[in-house]
Nucleic acid binder design. Structure first.
Length: 938
RNA sequence: GCCGAAGUGGUGGAAUUGGUAGACACGAUGGAUUCAAAAUCCAUUGCUCACAAGGCGUGCGGGUUCGAUUCCCGCCUUCGGUACCA
């Protein structure tokens, strides 16, 4: 019987599907375990070998946990809203729903043939109305909530309205817009309904606000910073302007501190935690108000982390976009300031931030008054200050901040020294711990901490500032001018947004003729002719019926990509529930994700927004946990190994890799499928693939054409994409699974090279041969040998340790060693080979199932208990001691482990090789570490 | 600039707490089998040296230690992220 992997794999995939082997129940006597993958975006290109890496790792873990007696939920779905499908629709006119469904089919086929233990009965698709109904529902929940700083959680908006009508907003301690004004209960009652709605919008957790965006008129859309290159759009090269637009925002800033604190209780990679905490960017300090010294006395609020250095302020710097710049600039400085603003506007935010070497700025001609000394402080503008951060203005202390120092030096501004015993002629002094303040009135002689405290106290006493904690984290813009996204459950009456009642959800995407923005610059939904809300019939009706009394226009924006992915992990717990987002029973049973595997590129997007929604849902009592994933692992990227041929510029001849020295050659990508394991090119195949090379001479070395190799990102244009379908066909899914794990550590990025797969494929064949010989099962009931037991238990121990530490590459090696040893031992004992099949099962499930069945079992191997490691089989009585001289190992010596230090030393010194090494010298010292090493010094 | 990760044979990588550097594979070389090929099996394979002995070897330069891929200090390079965050 041959190892016919194609047949075996198809058979077991069918078996698992028919028997619903991996369907997880929402109740069980077993403990629960939830293993989650980041669900894929189903792109038109299908999967390449890099995609399944994380899925294979999580599948091994899920399968292992089933063997360990857990009720495992391992779901999969699709993040199926997104830009590529929309782009494709614009180009071809095909509805994104159609192309998306087709892509999902391809993905499913590709995933199925790798043998994942997914519970497909729980599949979700974010673009499915039965799913996005609940995305819309959460949006309504957020709209109907405000953040109470006193209780430190989200509360129903009704409780806020109640407070307003009984006591106004004076005692409300909420996270809200900065421009809120004070009102009393009677004021509130006197406001019109529209005025009340406007005020409430400033408190809601999702709200409409004017936000500055990168607007590209030609594309009719907002662009991200990295979609803009040199001031024009990456796509098409159209001009981009900064523009204020009314958009939906999420008040994630309300959760800044809790998002930071929560990081301490989850087991996520430290680099990822660092990325999130840097993104949240908490800094403690003070806000200080400076007033301009003209008649208008404009207040300029700044935030500083160093209020102790306030007497060192010698100028202020505003962002060029700061509102005050136009108002305070003097006549003489006007043209210079305007020119500078114009120059700044052309630079992208990215450019401004990356360039640290160029110092630029302009004096506005205006002065502010120092809050304590009352001296005039010149006000400058500079593009190192960003409008979007803090207040867009800084108090500049050149002696204590290097950037301020450089700015002052460059523009010849005074640099007063307020640090005792410190030379600041060359650079600023930034060591807080060694700071002693001087030349600072009431702060003189104080150390950093005390000076900060006192400075804040004095500022507060004078009403010129207060202690403050500042976060970099900004509210998240939630509107997109796109078609293929969730529609908002929102219509507009009298210009104010109104929520559609949850019982009428979902609000389905309307049909449109064109997926582009309208000619008037409205989002694509502006093309829909049936896109109005009837408050009487409670349904979507034609726009022509809009009367603004009972029928109103609907929101034209759609939600961003991260909307659908921010609660999908909870929806998996109860995916078909049409009455609730998930039943209480389901969420109380599954609680949270035990293991989440995905890429680190989502660190400050998906993974931060999901934590935000989770905390919000927790506040509202929908969830038992305020963190959704206990443990997270980042899998690394699989890069491609590109192949190159070398064409000589002059002659046009193509030279083999070894012949290109001293020649001027151009490397040209060759398709990696035309290259074998020895880097040898299939020239005929290449000429067939690139007919231009039909008549080109290929100059060979030793009769072969050897290509050059380079590691690059896997991409179509580099011809280095490897499709898992081909691998599965040629070597089988089990080989693919093992090889992806064997490539290297899960977290590390590593290059793919198909050549090496013959190693793991050969291993599977050897494994098979342990069980079969000449087509017949050769398992015996014989007692196993001592060596075989040792091999088995060594393997159990190592593999189990490896799974727990996600070191899957080393366990594949361990399997190879195990099979090599058992083969050498001619082991055919059932008591060894049965547990071996179980050990291998999480990694190579198809062959394991087949072996299990051939050994006489009728049920799937998937829940058979994992073998138990027994240390007694590994006990050793002696050890091969390395004997080293001055730290260098020279020879080894077999010695009993019972020997004492002294006995070991005596035995080693008596050895003839020791005497030979010493050549008559007397050692200075002999280090004996029993069970480890002997080192002779001297 | 800042933050993070990483530099080990021809290649992917191993060495879990400071204790035999290069496990396991790929590739290469030689051999067996075969009409031949595929497949399979055996041997060798860090560099240096004709062999042996020896010497050199984990990005570079120092240090700690009986002993360093592992710890410390100072650099260099590559990759990923980014926010001049006051």
């Amino acid at each position: 019987m041959q190892y016919n992997f194609n047949e075996i794999e198809a058979k077991w995939q069918k078996y698992w599907a028919e028997n619903q082997t991996f369907k997880a129940e929402n109740t069980s006597s077993k403990p629960k375990f939830y293993v989650l993958d980041m669900f894929p975006y189903p792109s038109g290109a299908g999967l390449h070998v890099g995609h399944p890496l994380g899925y294979i790792a999580s599948d091994i873990y899920a399968r292992y946990k089933r063997h360990k007696g857990f009720n495992v939920m391992h779901p999969q779905g699709y993040d199926s809203f997104g830009l590529p499908a929309e782009q494709y629709a614009i180009q071809t006119g095909q509805h994104p729903a159609v192309t998306t469904a087709k892509n999902i089919q391809t993905y499913r086929r590709q995933l199925d043939q790798i043998g994942f233990s997914f519970d497909w009965s729980r599949e979700v698709r974010t673009s499915d109305p039965s799913y996005y109904k609940w995305t819309q529902w959460i949006f309504i929940q957020l709209f109907n909530s405000w953040y109470n700083k006193d209780s430190d959680k989200a509360e129903a908006i009704d409780t806020l309205i109640e407070r307003f009508s009984t006591g106004g907003n004076a005692k409300v301690n909420a996270v809200c817009d900065a421009d809120i004004f004070k009102f009393s209960a009677s004021d509130w009652k006197g406001f019109s309904s529209k005025e009340q709605q406007e005020i409430l919008l400033k408190y809601r957790l999702t709200y409409l606000a004017k936000t500055e965006v990168n607007w590209c008129p030609a594309l009719g859309t907002v662009l991200a910073n990295d979609e803009i290159i040199n001031g024009v759009s990456e796509r098409g090269g159209h001009p981009v302007v900064r523009k204020k637009m009314t958009q939906w925002s999420m008040r994630i800033s309300a959760y800044a501190q809790r998002l930071l604190d929560g990081l301490n209780k989850i087991d996520w990679p430290q680099p990822l935690k660092d990325a999130q905490s840097n993104w949240i960017g908490r800094s403690q300090g003070a806000s200080v108000v400076f007033y301009t010294n003209d008649k208008a006395k404009h207040p300029i609020e700044v935030f500083t982390t160093r209020p102790d250095t306030i007497f060192g302020v010698s100028f202020m710097t505003l962002a060029p976009e700061h509102d005050l710049v136009g108002k305070i600039t003097t006549q003489e400085q006007k043209s210079a300031v305007e020119a500078y603003i114009k120059a700044t506007a052309k630079r992208s935010e990215r450019d401004r931030m990356a360039d640290v070497k160029t110092i630029s700025g302009v004096f506005t001609g205006a002065y502010a008054v120092h809050p304590f000394t009352k001296k005039p402080i010149p006000i400058w503008i500079g593009d190192y200050v960003l409008a979007g951060y803090g207040t867009g203005a800084v108090m500049s202390v050149p002696c204590g901040d290097q950037r301020d120092f450089d700015f002052a030096k460059h523009f010849n501004i005074a640099i007063p020294n307020i640090f005792e015993g410190v030379d600041i002629s060359e650079k600023a002094f930034t060591d807080k711990e060694k700071t002693i303040i001087t030349n600072s009135d009431f702060l003189n002689g104080l150390k950093y901490k005390k000076a900060v405290k006192l400075a804040i106290y004095e500022l507060e006493k004078r009403g010129l500032g207060e202690g403050k904690i500042n976060y970099r984290l900004r509210d998240a813009v939630f509107s997109r001018q796109r078609y293929w996204g969730e529609p908002f459950p929102v219509y507009y009456a009298d210009g104010m947004p109104q929520m559609i009642a949850p019982e009428h959800l979902p609000i389905k995407l309307p049909k449109v003729e064109k997926y582009l923005p309208t000619e008037t610059g409205e989002p694509p939904l502006g093309n829909a002719s049936v896109w109005a809300w009837c408050t009487e019939k409670n349904e979507v009706v034609p726009n022509s019926e809009i009367n603004h009394t009972s029928i109103f226009p609907l929101e034209l924006n759609t939600m961003p990509g991260w909307a659908g992915s921010s609660q999908y992990f909870n929806r998996y717990m109860d995916p078909h529930n049409d009455d609730e987002i998930f039943a209480k029973d389901a969420i109380n049973y599954w609680q949270d994700v035990d293991l989440y595997i995905g890429g680190s590129e989502h660190a400050t997007g998906h993974l931060l927004y999901s934590r935000f929604w989770q905390k919000f849902m927790f506040d509202k009592g929908f969830l038992p946990k305020d963190e959704f994933a206990k443990k997270l692992i980042n899998q690394g990227m699989i890069t491609g190994t590109s192949a190159f041929i070398y064409r000589e510029e002059e002659t046009g001849k193509v030279f083999s890799r070894g012949l290109i020295k001293d020649k001027k050659v151009t490397p040209i990508h060759a398709d990696v499928s035309l290259v074998n394991a020895s880097d040898e090119l299939d020239i005929e195949g290449f000429k067939k693939w690139q007919p231009d090379y039909e008549d080109v001479e290929f100059v060979l070395e030793n009769g072969k054409y050897i290509v050059g190799r380079e590691v690059e990102k896997m991409s179509k244009s580099k011809y280095n994409v490897v499709n898992p379908d081909d691998i599965v066909k040629e070597y089988g899914a089990d080989s693919l699974r093992l090889y992806e794990m064997f490539l290297g550590p899960l977290e590390q990025s590593k290059p793919w090279n198909t050549a090496g797969i013959t190693g793991v494929h050969g291993f599977l064949k050897k494994l098979w041969k342990l069980y079969f010989s000449e087509g017949k099962l050769k398992i015996t009931a014989d007692d196993p040998s001592k060596e075989s037991l040792k091999t088995l238990h060594k393997t159990i121990k190592k593999v189990e340790e490896d799974i727990q530490s996600f070191s899957f590459n080393t366990s594949v090696s361990t399997f190879m060693i195990c099979v090599n040893e058992l083969t050498a031992q001619k082991c055919s004992s059932r008591s060894i080979l049965e547990p071996l099949a179980i050990l291998v099962s999480p990694y190579a499930p198809h062959i394991a199932e087949e072996l299990w069945q051939k050994m006489g079992y009728t049920d799937s191997i998937s829940t058979v208990p994992f073998p138990i490691f027994e240390p007694k089989y590994l006990l050793e009585s002696s050890k091969e001691y390395p004997i080293s001289f001055n730290g260098k190992m020279k020879f080894t010596m077999e010695l009993s482990l019972d020997l004492s230090k002294e006995e070991i030393e005596t035995a080693v010194m008596a050895h003839e090789k020791t005497q030979a090494q010493l050549a008559g010298r007397t050692p200075k010292k002999v280090i004996v570490v029993p069970g480890k090493i002997v080192n002779i010094v001297g």
